Amino acid sequence: MDSAFYSALKSFTGSAKVYPVLAPDDAVAPMVVYQRTSTQRDLTIDGLSGLVSASYRIDIYATSLKAAQSLSDTVVIGLSQHKEAPINYITIDNEFDGSDLSGDPKLFRMIVEVTAHFNL
Rank of each mutant, 00 (worst) to 15 (best):
D2M: 13
D2N: 11
S3W: 15
S3H: 12
A4I: 05
F5L: 02
F5A: 02
Y6V: 09
S7C: 15
S15W: 06
V18I: 12
Y19V: 00
A23E: 12
D25T: 09
M31C: 08
V32C: 01
V33Y: 00
T37E: 07
T37R: 05
T37Q: 10
T44I: 04
G50H: 01
V52L: 02
A54R: 08
S55A: 08
Y56D: 05
I58K: 11
A62N: 04
T63A: 14
L65D: 14
A67G: 05
A67Q: 06
A68N: 08
S70G: 13
L71N: 02
L71Q: 05
T74M: 09
V75K: 05
V75Y: 00
V75H: 06
S80E: 08
A85H: 15
A85L: 12
P86E: 10
I87M: 04
Y89R: 15
Y89F: 15
I90E: 11
T91R: 15
D93F: 12
N94K: 13
E95L: 14
G98E: 01
G98V: 00
L101F: 09
G103I: 00
P105S: 07
L107F: 01
F108I: 03
R109G: 04
R109P: 00
V112T: 06
V112G: 02
V114P: 01
H117V: 13
F118I: 09
